[in-house]
Design a protein around this nucleic acid. Structure first.
Lengths: 118, 118
DNA sequence: TCGCAACATTCTAATACTGTCATATTACGA
DNA sequence: TCGTAATATGACAGTATTAGAATGTTGCGA
């Protein structure tokens, strides 16, 4: 029963299922950042940043690199950015669909007929 | 400050953050299915399937189509399959990395000297 | 209208996640 | 070695998710 694979995938997506973690990954798109830099850039508490980094790290989405007393994080696989991009595109399309429905309603109210390709 | 956009994205990923929901989406890849068909195919309780479908539906990932007493679900946007594919690819790559580390360890144990505690 | 089939919703107990606060670890320089 | 900066971890209360059981709702045929 490859139940485990779905669980792993689910954990993967769950790792991205938090606004702060999305923002962290987004910030890392420009390159690696130290914990302090992330904290400053996102305006979050130190423990919160460290905890969320811990979640992303545990799921293997980011890798730490120690340098002196600082720890620099970078995404382990650039594919994670594709995930964000696709999610964004899906969101946009969803908005468009809602807009289409609204327009359709408007058109109907205005007395027009039907016009609906893709 | 588009904090809300990250929240929406996070909700999006959170919707995929459960093994049962991953399996449902996966099953819908072949085409629309009724609740009963999903239930049978995944071997889950009726209320569980309905609940998880409710989550996916609330997040706009799937659309219902009523026909008689049955409700057929289909994914709202095929891009969701890309998400699954990318997650799969990331998982594979992660395995590969772990394998590489294991091999490296093996090589070191096989005699290639290095600093080692006792 | 009755009764059933197909889904949806509600309730509850267990579990998981979150932010806040406090404390611990690590690396470095004096 | 001591002190401090940079991170990590632990404990806690509040909230959210989950599965399972029970109950509601809807559509259709007799």
């Amino acid at each position: 029963m490859p139940n485990s694979l779905e669980s792993i995938k689910a954990d993967f997506f769950k790792a991205l299922g938090h606004p702060a973690r999305i923002r962290i990954v987004k910030a890392l798109r420009a390159g690696e950042l130290s914990v302090g830099q992330i904290q400053e850039e996102l305006g979050l508490e130190q423990s919160v940043v460290s905890q969320q980094l811990g979640v992303l790290r545990a799921k293997g989405l980011i890798d730490p690199r120690r340098s002196g007393t600082s720890v620099y994080y970078s995404v382990a696989d650039d594919k994670v950015f594709e995930l964000l991009d696709i999610a964004r595109a899906m969101f946009d399309q969803q908005l468009q669909s809602l807009q289409a429905i609204a327009d359709e309603d408007d058109a109907r109210q205005d007395g027009l007929a039907e016009t609906e390709p893709a």
